[in-house]
């Protein structure tokens, strides 16, 4: 039997103890960062809330008969109400999609405003059962002179790709 005294481990220095304390925190932080990279780099198309009009039928997740959300501008002079049905055209990047919605979308829905329509394409028309108005980050005071200016601006119905 070996009865020689065991070597006594040198006591840890304060710096070593502190380093050891931070190792689990660093590992969890790294795991979180890796998770963040996976989410931002590889799941973008799944996390995106909508497809743009010009991506319908082309982009992964925006094809086929499946239920999708489509974003675009309500085209000027396209809005009609027929027998309780709202008909309008959604436009984005020079592509247009006809939309049919049962009822009145309500809220601030109007022409020349970006909206997200939920539904599916049936016979080339987007049959929507839910409309959400997508407000921009432009805030314009409502007064006479500015109102005219804003009306002229929205008349252009322009929307930059996002």
């Amino acid at each position: 039997m070996d009865l020689t005294p065991r070597p006594i481990a040198a006591p840890e220095s304060r710096a070593q103890r502190q380093r050891r304390r931070w190792i689990p925190v660093a590992i969890v932080a790294l795991a979180l960062a890796a998770g963040g990279i996976v989410v931002t780099q590889f799941l973008t198309s799944a996390i995106d809330y909508y497809c743009n009009v010009d991506e319908v039928g082309l982009r992964e997740g925006c094809v086929g008969q499946r239920r999708i959300r489509v974003q675009g501008n309500v085209l000027e002079n396209s809005l009609q109400q027929v027998d309780g049905v709202t008909l309008f055209a959604l436009s984005f990047n020079d592509k247009t999609l006809q939309v049919r919605y049962q009822g009145d979308p309500g809220g601030v829905f109007q022409e020349c405003i970006p909206v997200v329509a939920h539904g599916r394409i049936i016979n080339g028309i987007f049959d929507s059962d839910r409309i959400e108005v997508k407000h921009t980050n432009q805030y314009v005071e409502k007064n006479k002179s500015r109102f005219d200016e804003a009306t002229n601006e929205t008349a252009a119905c322009s929307q930059s790709p996002e």
């Binding site: 314009v140 005071e141 409502k142």
Partner: peptide, 14 residues
């Protein structure tokens, strides 16, 4: 402060 041209008084929630 004035109302917003699209949102009206709802802008005040901001």
């Amino acid at each position: 402060s004035a109302e917003d041209v699209v949102q009206g008084s709802t802008v005040r929630i901001m």
